[in-house]
Computed example of a mutant assay.
Amino acid sequence: MIDVKVLIDKAFEAQQFCYTPYSGFNVGAALLCDNGNIYKGCNIENAAFTPTNCAERTAFFKAISEGDNKFTAIAIVGNKNGLKPGEGDFCAPCAVCRQVMAEFCDLDTFKVYIAKSRDEYLEYTLGELLPLAFTGKDIK
């Protein structure tokens, strides 16, 4: 397992590439695969709003499109334009992102780190963030 602070650093790196002309709210994510690969994602807005993609899903879709589909953890950071790390609040993943995570990750072992700064973060399992998750097992 990688040091959590390194994963958080990668999420802050990803945050620098956000495209948020409407909300001004920048989110970065760093997704850790079980093979050690890290995929970064940022939120990308669209004037029609529905096509907007969250940072977490960007990271997942990048990983899956590159052939990685086994994941151990994700770090998520987010704040308004102009705020420095530690000045904002914790930015939890939206329900759609939690559902995407549930498609590919184990509810009991996949870790979600929600960070304000390198040293201020919360740790959850996916199951804690998405109790009673609806997964592929429910439609078999």
Rank of each mutant, 00 (worst) to 15 (best):
E45K: 00
F110C: 03
C91Y: 09
R57D: 06
E45D: 08
D138N: 14
L83T: 09
T52F: 02
G88K: 07
V112T: 11
T109I: 10
E128D: 10
A115R: 06
I2H: 06
I114N: 10
I64Q: 02
G88A: 09
G78L: 09
D9V: 05
I64C: 03
N79Q: 12
I76M: 04
G36K: 11
D3I: 02
K5H: 09
D9Q: 11
Q16S: 11
D3H: 12
L83E: 13
A63K: 05
N46W: 05
F12R: 10
G28K: 02
P131K: 10
K5P: 01
L31M: 04
C94N: 13
R57M: 08
V6C: 03
N35P: 01
P131Q: 12
E66Y: 14
I114C: 11
T52H: 04
P51M: 04
G41Y: 00
L129V: 11
L130A: 13
I64F: 05
E45I: 01
F90V: 12
R118N: 14
N79H: 13
N79F: 08
A30P: 04
E56P: 01
K111N: 13
V77A: 07
M1Q: 11
L126R: 06
L132S: 13
P131R: 09
A48R: 11
F90M: 10
K116C: 06
I76L: 15
I2D: 03
A75K: 12
P131C: 09
D108S: 14
P93M: 08
A95P: 01
D3S: 10
D3P: 02
V112E: 05
L130R: 07
I114V: 15
A95F: 15
I74P: 02
A92H: 15
L129D: 08
K137I: 03
R98Y: 03
K40V: 10
F71T: 01
F12W: 10
P131M: 08
T58R: 04
A48H: 11
F90N: 10
G86C: 05
G28R: 07
